[in-house]
């Protein structure tokens, strides 16, 4: 196992804002976490909570009118939040790779798969086309694409969605990165293929010691995959801890709401407890806690924006009235009653 004293990636108080005509959109506002070699961090939250922008910030791919305006992104101890374009280019795809959400849109439609794989190797290493081709073939086989030699000559439209995502994963693995940011890579796929890909990616990371940030809006996906999870709401981390702790004893009302809205076997037939209301617009967040308009526990203190606290050991929570272990079980006991 690699030296796990220095995290592969540590994000501290990251802030990424978009300076739009309508105002400043604080898409990421105070996000902190870290991942170590071989670990999987689950980044969970509803759509629009800032997960993708967090991922792009790590790779230095935030486009105008967005900018990383605060915090540190430490890759093996080196702060890359303001690194030069060339430094970032060398890190991207080589040390830090990313897999995108929609496999139908990720590959260039007019370039053959071999072109798109070989260029990813040659961008970082001075190797012959033949060698790069051979490595591409091996990478396709590694992710379970049959007849890899044939497939290399194909264009993206000749692949199914699941196969395209495997190609994208193979591309991410090409240069043996230390960190992979996987942005909802299975959301667009059907459940069977989602399961296969989850299993394979997990295996690959264990074997190679690659650290991974797995972004999803689906708690049940991270449950079996991640070591730690970070729950995001309106650009902020609202709860952070090990996956078992957080799922068994959620401390933030939003996390609890997410857990209760996941369909599960022992509550079959039951209407799902959706969190009421909608994610507020980032342009006019309510004063105080951004969750207060939807929160069942709202109290007088919620007019002031909560800071991170540690109500339980090894847990970060951003709430004035965190849920305690006994209460969290309440909805389940009602069901059995």
């Amino acid at each position: 196992m690699a030296n796990s004293d220095v995290p592969t990636l540590e994000v501290r108080n990251l802030q990424t804002h978009f300076f739009t005509r309508a105002g400043v959109v604080k898409a990421v506002d105070d996000v902190s976490f870290s991942v170590r070699p071989g670990e999987v961090l689950g980044l969970v939250g509803e759509s629009g909570s800032g997960k993708t922008v967090t991922g792009f910030s790590i790779l230095g791919l935030v486009d105008e009118p967005g900018r990383v305006v605060g915090g540190e992104i430490l890759y093996k101890g080196e702060n890359i939040a303001n690194a030069s374009d060339e430094r970032m280019r060398r890190l991207r795809g080589n040390n830090i790779a990313m897999i995108f959400q929609d496999p139908m849109m990720t590959l260039n439609p007019v370039l053959r798969v071999d072109t798109q794989m070989i260029e990813a190797i040659q961008a970082h290493e001075n190797v012959s086309r033949n060698e790069a081709w051979e490595r591409s073939r091996a990478a396709l086989e590694q992710v379970g694409i049959p007849a890899a030699e044939e497939r290399l000559k194909s264009y993206p439209h000749q692949f199914s969605g699941g196969m395209r995502q495997r190609v994208a994963i193979a591309i991410a693995l090409l240069n043996k990165p230390d960190l992979i940011v996987a942005d909802e890579p299975t959301t667009a796929l059907d459940v069977t293929i989602q399961g296969q890909i989850l299993y394979e990616v997990q295996k690959l990371c264990e074997e190679t010691g690659t650290a991974m940030i797995w972004i999803t809006h689906d708690l049940s996906v991270v449950a079996g995959l991640a070591d730690e999870i970070c729950v995001m709401y309106a650009g902020r981390v609202v709860e952070h801890g090990t996956v078992n702790d957080v799922l068994d004893n959620p401390a933030h009302p939003y996390t609890l709401g997410l857990i209760n809205s996941v369909p599960s076997r022992n509550r079959r037939g039951e209407p799902l407890a959706q969190i009421p209301g909608m994610t507020p617009s980032l342009l006019n967040l309510p004063k105080g806690c951004p969750f207060k308009t939807r929160c069942p526990r709202v109290g007088p203190d919620c007019e002031i924006e909560p800071a991170i606290t540690h109500p339980v050991t090894a847990r970060d929570v951003r709430c004035h009235y965190p849920v305690t272990a006994g209460e969290a079980a309440a909805p389940t006991s009602e069901v059995t009653a």
Binding site: R89, L91, R92, G93, N94, F100, T106, Q116, A120, A123
Partner: peptide, 8 residues
């Protein structure tokens, strides 16, 4: 964006 993410 993916092409840029590859470090091209």
């Amino acid at each position: 964006k993916f092409a840029r993410a590859k470090g091209l």
